[in-house]
Design a protein around this nucleic acid. Structure first.
Length: 668
RNA sequence: UGGGGCGUCGCCAAGCGGUAAGGCACCAGACUUUGGAUCUGGCACCCGGAGGUUCGAAUCCUCCCGCCCCAACCA
């Protein structure tokens, strides 16, 4: 990208900052970012925000973005997570090229940095135990006390640190600490720990090390090693920035990277913390990391969410510093928008009820033409659907006693079967329990294809399948995992918060035969239902399994609610939305003009009259709005006059006087 | 409580002293062989609150209120 893209107002405050840095000639015009996950869990959509940001900023400014595993704690990390991270970043559509790194590959350099810190008298080996360290740290309101080991000589520190590395001491015997300030107001600066002794096998380095650097030490220096220019992280690291700066400055790292924080993503009806996700998986409240109800990228992928939709979502939520929780309906909207324009429509009856067309010949089968796409989707393609005497329609599409506003089938009413015929319900057959098990209908042979030749209006169109031709499939209807909007704010156990309807498995669904063809692709829209994705794990040619990615918008659902609970709709709800009285614009006592100003005013009026007239003439709408009481717009008009009204002498007119003149001109 | 950050529509979010963008959600209507899609219109006289500066304040100043983060040998 060229310099012309360095605009003062970017898409977000981070891009603005990068643009400013570039414009100021900082960092030799380079932009290098990094996505630095710890491989201790599966990436989720919150990570996607960070991935899109880091790779996106690099892309926008012609820079590069590294993928670096921040693997400094061997106890929680695993190679399996590394694979998941690599796969998911790639799946999202980003490419780190050659720039794939492990912080653990820097352990030797990091060790050297630590030695250098000791040499400069800026780090020491502390032999307090964990509890003592905590105690010496003080509290948020009281300063800490210096460790008794703080003044060890450089030689002693060098020797001890060397022996820590050599494995001469048991775990926890010593730590390396930065020598900063035990009374710092920022708790993070009270001699933070840099290294701890930990005999654990590292998934990547094996047993090569028994001391491991802490995040606060490893992260900034890994950034420095990779010559990162902009280190973007989430808000909870704001306090850590002081250490970051202290380290790169104390070690005199050339052209040091700088850290900038942004708000992490939260989303309604789900949890995002690794701890809670892990808990859901371990307690088997979900089927695994790739459970389609989880916000993990593997879960979303299995559910049928697409990289394009997730990237679009990340674009739309923005990047800012305010903690926020994004409405999951935005994600759903992005997904529908992506699939709408490219997915074939087919007919699938999720919960079937039998329909017999009494006047349709027993053994007749017709092949009816049906396009895959509606007229507003610019794609071609069609198939035929078999029609016969015995069909199935959706159970919900029939009501013996139709609620108000019901457009579907009920006794005596007509309805259109999509691409087929208009039928009328003549009677129903019930079982012993009184449940409708069969709907008896007649069809109108003159309506083949679904069009009523006589122009008669049919209120509803239903999806259907032919009993003899339909393919049985399994359909998994996924819904929000939690029934509360903000589960992260609740203290109740998961069991009470989870949505019992988050998964409904339908084993008796019936798919039209042509739709079983895998050549149609992995995504299908089941008309009037939603977008579905062939389950990549359980679906086989013999037993098709579809996951509902997202339902279609349903403008009947809210109506149906009202119809079901008519008494609940009280007019009281609307009362609170009564029109507010217009705010009293306190007519500030017009500040009296001085005699001098009065004199100027007369003069100004003479000079400015043409300008005033021109401005008022040029902005009739604004004038109208002013006259109708929207007086705030006066500022706009003043600005217009100021712009055009440079006086002959060159000086700008006094805005105060322009204000007065305008007010008068407007009839004030 | 000391320090750091943040408060603009139900949810996100622009705004950088001169007419409160946009999206999602919601509501109404048009169109419709998906109660889908699309289109049109409606949704903040007001920016956490109170003062102040200014011709003019969401933007500047002062005070106050609320929320988040920090006292792991986690990241």
């Amino acid at each position: 990208m060229s310099d012309t893209d360095v605009s003062p107002s970017g898409r977000d405050f981070i891009r603005e900052m990068v643009a400013r840095d570039l414009a100021a000639g900082k960092r030799g015009g380079r932009v290098v970012t990094r996505f630095p996950p710890e491989p201790n869990g599966f990436p989720h959509i919150g990570h996607a925000k960070s991935i899109c940001l880091n790779f996106g900023v690099a892309q926008d400014f012609g820079g590069t973005c590294h993928l670096r595993l921040d693997d400094t704690n061997p106890e929680t990390e695993d190679q399996a997570y590394v694979e998941a991270i690599r796969r998911d970043v790639r799946w999202l559509g980003f490419d780190w090229g050659e720039n794939f790194f492990y912080a653990s590959d820097y352990f030797e350099q990091l060790y050297d940095f630590a030695v250098e810190l000791i040499r400069r008298g800026k780090a020491y080996v502390c032999s307090l135990n964990e509890d003592e360290i905590r105690e010496y740290r003080g509290t948020v309101t009281e300063p800490g006390r210096n460790s008794p080991y703080r003044d060890r000589s450089v030689e002693e520190n060098l020797d001890l640190f060397r022996r820590m590395r050599d494995g001469e001491f048991p775990d926890g015997a010593h730590v390396l600490r930065a020598k900063i300030d035990m009374s710092a107001a920022n708790m993070k600066m009270r001699d933070p720990l840099l290294y701890r002794i930990k005999r654990a096998t590292h998934y990547h380095r094996g047993d090569a090390w028994c001391i491991y650097p802490m995040y606060d030490f490893a992260h900034p220096l890994s950034d420095a090693i990779e010559k990162i220019t902009h280190s973007l992280c989430t808000l909870e690291f704001e306090n850590n920035r002081d250490i970051y700066d202290w380290l790169v400055d104390t070690l005199e790292v050339p052209d040091p990277p700088r850290q900038t924080e942004f708000a992490r993503l939260n989303m309604t009806y789900t949890v995002m913390s690794k701890r809670k996700l892990l808990q859901l998986v371990e307690r088997k409240l979900v089927a695994g990391w790739d459970d389609p109800r989880l916000p993990t990228l593997s879960g979303l992928r299995r559910r049928g969410f697409t990289p394009a939709a997730i990237r679009d979502f990340c674009d739309r939520i923005g990047v800012a510093k305010a903690n926020s929780t994004v409405d999951v309906t935005l994600l759903e909207h992005c997904q529908r928008e992506d699939l709408n324009v490219r997915v074939p429509r087919v007919l699938c009856v999720l919960r079937p009820v039998k329909v017999v067309i009494e006047n349709y010949p027993e053994d007749q089968v017709e092949e009816l033409d049906a396009p895959f796409y509606p007229r507003d989707v610019p794609k071609e393609g069609s198939r035929t659907v078999p029609f016969s005497r015995v069909l199935y329609i959706e159970r919900d599409d029939f009501a013996e006693v139709p609620p108000k506003g019901f457009h579907r089938l009920s006794p005596g009413r007509e309805v259109r079967l999509r691409y087929a015929y208009i039928i009328r319900c003549e009677s129903v057959v019930k079982d012993a329990a009184g449940e409708v098990i069969e709907i008896r209908c007649t069809y109108d042979p003159a309506t083949r294809g679904g069009a009523a030749a006589d122009g008669r209006k049919v209120p509803g169109t239903l999806h259907w399948v032919s009993a003899a031709h339909a393919v049985p499939v399994e359909v998994r209807i996924y819904d929000r995992l939690f029934q509360v909007e903000r589960p992260d704010l609740e203290e109740a156990p998961f069991e009470e918060l989870l949505n019992p309807q988050s998964l409904e498995t339908l084993t008796g669904s019936l798919l039209e035969p042509a739709a079983a063809d895998p050549a149609l692709g992995d995504w299908l829209q089941f008309e009037r239902q939603g977008y579905f994705f062939r389950d990549p794990v359980d679906s086989t040619p013999e037993r098709l399994v579809f996951n509902r990615t997202v339902a279609l918008r349903d403008s009947w659902a809210p109506e149906a609610q009202k119809a079901a609970a008519p008494a609940a709709a009280s007019p009281a709800a609307s009362a609170s939305r009564a029109p507010k009285p217009p705010k009293e614009t306190e007519a500030k006592a017009p500040e009296p003009l001085t005699a001098e100003e009065l004199e100027q005013l007369a003069h100004l009026r003479g000079v400015l009259q043409p300008v005033l007239d021109a401005v008022l003439a040029a902005h009739p709408a604004e004038v109208e709005r002013y006259r109708s009481g929207q007086t705030g717009i006066l500022g706009f008009l003043v600005a217009q006059v100021m712009k055009r009204g440079a006086q002959p002498g060159g000086g700008k007119p006094s805005p105060k006087l322009v204000n007065v003149l305008l007010t008068q001109a407007l009839g004030g």
